Simulated scan of single mutants.
Amino acid sequence: MNDSKRPYSTYLPQERYIWQLALTGQERSLGILWELLEAIGIESTLVTPRVAQQKAFLALYLPSEREAQAMQQRLHELLESWSDMLDDEITIELARLENREWQESWKDFFHAEQVSPHLAVRPSWEDVRFPPEIRVISLDPGLSFGTGKHGTTRACLAFIDKIISERGPLPVLDVGCGSGILSIGAALLGCHPVVLFDFDPQAMIAVRENFACNGLDDYFLFMADAGRIPLAQTFPLVCANLETPIIEACYPSIIKTVAAGGYLIVSGILHPESNRVISLFRDHGFSLADQTRIDEWWTGLFRL
């Protein structure tokens, strides 16, 4: 079956896994590599061995096999370009982790940080204070993705912040909401109503827990397929942080939810695929108001 015709549900696994890239080498080289990756915005965790004979490794965590494979290819290219700065050969192994391993691994490197001018993200196990003008999203990754660490999430939150700063709070629809982080950010910035949905049952659990963790109870959550959105009303702000194949398969349903003059944030797009997505929405009456790239991920802000 062609990817562009594949149903949305096939992209959301019935059992949630996280994909780990483990870069193994001498600790000194990995320390240098960690700094190089941090400098270009790639988050990783340096794991030092408890046994002297074992090698240290850097761990990167991705929410899908597709993203993990794309990152693995990029890491191979980066290692080749940085070979003069590293003392030994570094190997890369890709592995799939179970749910429990995924949840525990996040505590090693998910820490509080500001992600836009008026928004910060903080894991529930950290007590970090921000200035009063900063709205703090408190959440755990749980079994659903979206923590503010991924470039697509950061870009979406930044665009939400920008739009609300310019236009004031707006009604919001969050398509494929995952952990609910985008909707929570919008709600903390005053948006109402906040409507969100996902196809994944685990997302329903994570969203309810994360909204409660932030003291929010005024939202409308339901389970649905992005290709068949059961809503008659339109919204001045719609967020769709998905993937290119899902966007291409589900865009007819998504664009029907955008109000005239409204904004559509589209993310989860690998940069080489961005021109396809731009053309797709331009062909259906949208103009590209802004765009950004974080690592290999492109995010577009469209206006109808």
Rank of each mutant, 00 (worst) to 15 (best):
P131K: 02
L78I: 13
V194I: 15
E126G: 07
E98K: 13
I160C: 05
E133V: 08
F197H: 06
W102T: 09
V128Y: 03
S165T: 14
A158N: 12
R154Y: 12
P117T: 08
H118R: 15
C191H: 03
S179M: 01
G168D: 02
W125V: 13
C177G: 06
F197K: 10
E126M: 12
R122E: 03
L196D: 06
A112C: 00
I90S: 09
N99C: 09
R129A: 15
F109P: 08
L94A: 09
E77G: 10
R74E: 15
E98D: 15
W106Y: 13
E126W: 07
S144N: 03
V194K: 00
L188P: 00
E93G: 07
G168P: 04
G151Y: 02
L97P: 01
E80Y: 13
L139Y: 11
P141N: 04
W125T: 13
L139F: 09
W82M: 10
S179V: 08
V175E: 05
S124Y: 06
F159S: 03
G168R: 01
D161F: 01
G151P: 00
L182K: 03
A186S: 10
W106N: 08
D108R: 15
P131Y: 01
V172K: 06
L157V: 08
I163E: 00
L188T: 08
E93H: 10
P169T: 05
A158P: 06
H76I: 15
F197P: 03
I160P: 02
A95S: 14
L94F: 00
P131G: 08
R100C: 08
P131I: 09
R167G: 09
P117W: 01
G151W: 04
P169E: 10
P117N: 05
V136G: 07
I92Q: 04
F110C: 11
P171I: 04
